[in-house]
Amino acid sequence: MDTEAVRSFVRAAELGQLRHAADELGVTQQAVSKRVAALERELGVRLFTRTARGVELTLDGQAFLPHARNVVAGVERAVTAIRPGARALRIDVLGLRSAQAVVLHDYWRSRPGTELDVVTLRVNDPREAVAAVRAGELDASFRSVTDPAVLPREVRMIHAFDSPLELLVGPRHPLAGARTLTPERLRRHRIWVPGIAPHSEWAEFYDELATEFDLRIDAAGPNFGNEVLLDILADSADVATLVGSRDRYLWPAQHDLRRIPVAGPTLAYPLSLLLPRTDPHPGLPPVIDHFASLPPLPGPVWRPSWAPARRPATS
């Protein structure tokens, strides 16, 4: 069914004249008449009777009108849902307990009424996120492309904020009593990070981190999720993992896990934002300004070689 024909019928029914409907829709009266006639042929009924004053609904037209209004309203909602500026800002995050989601939630709480659609693509290769931004399926994505030269011209990558790492251990681990740790003290300890996917940005991050500080980062074994990882840490005297300081992890009180900051230097995971180079969603600039307003990490900071430069606030 031609939705423009249905729209023409609805406006003609509401205004009582084909000419007035044509003026409102920006087409000729003849075009509206042809659309209505085609709709009548498709339905096999007469929707209007013509009078000297314009058009009046037949009984079939009266029965069809409320449903036709629903069709028009549904089409308008569908178009609004995908039109930048008319729909909520759609941002992809790695997970709903990740630092990206936590900072976005802080932004949303500080601006009540902000239309925000937080989604998770659930892909490991950042090129898939680039393609989604390029196609307009996303307004932005919290992904990093470690070689910016491969970005298409339509997409750019900017620094969002840095996520400092912490060591997460159980109470029996030899480092469990430390208040802070240097990267040097992590050497020779097994740091288990399951789920490091090939070709992902975090695979390159951990490769560079391990090389720089001579760390033993182990990704062996299947990834059964955070709950299983936390159970293993709670029972282990030699396994630790690295987590972002803003990442949300929940565990039973009896696990007695410890989150220990790493400093001297601070190990920072750089979180980047992929967005269109032109005509970004109007809701993006204040989000980017919010990221830029976050306090910088104190003391010396290590970031991987591919991390984009920190951006100043634009307002």
Rank of each mutant, 00 (worst) to 15 (best):
V103Y: 03
S33T: 13
V228L: 04
P280L: 12
H105Y: 14
T51A: 02
S272Q: 02
G44N: 04
V93Y: 10
G74P: 04
R172P: 13
R109T: 12
Q254E: 15
Q254N: 15
L209H: 06
V102M: 03
L104Q: 06
A52D: 15
D289N: 13
A5L: 05
H281L: 10
F205E: 03
A135P: 02
D238A: 08
W251S: 06
D207C: 03
P304K: 00
Y107D: 08
V71Y: 01
A13H: 13
L96A: 13
V93Q: 08
V27I: 12
D238R: 01
L297G: 04
I232A: 13
D218Y: 14
W192E: 04
G195S: 04
R46S: 02
V10L: 09
A88F: 04
D60Q: 04
D231R: 06
P164D: 02
Q29R: 11
W302I: 00
R111W: 01
E208M: 05
E56N: 11
A210N: 02
R122I: 00
H290D: 10
E4R: 08
V119S: 06
T3W: 13
S8G: 09
I82C: 09
A37R: 00
G225I: 10
A237I: 05
S236A: 13
S200F: 07
V239M: 15
V6T: 12
N124Y: 14
L65K: 03
L25G: 05
R122Q: 03
A52C: 06
Y269S: 00
P112C: 09
A149F: 08
D2V: 06
H20L: 14
G74Y: 00
P252H: 09
W202D: 06
N70K: 15
L230R: 07
E166R: 07
S8R: 07
P84N: 01
L39S: 07
S245M: 15
Y269N: 03
T49W: 10
S98V: 03
L209G: 06
Q30R: 12
N223F: 11
S141C: 05
P280W: 14
V71E: 07
V71W: 01
V6Q: 00
H290I: 02
T182M: 14
F224E: 13
V239H: 15
R77A: 11
G61L: 02
G225M: 09
L168R: 02
F48L: 05
D218T: 09
G177V: 05
G170L: 09
L230A: 09
A178I: 07
L94H: 03
F213I: 06
H67L: 12
L186M: 08
F205K: 05
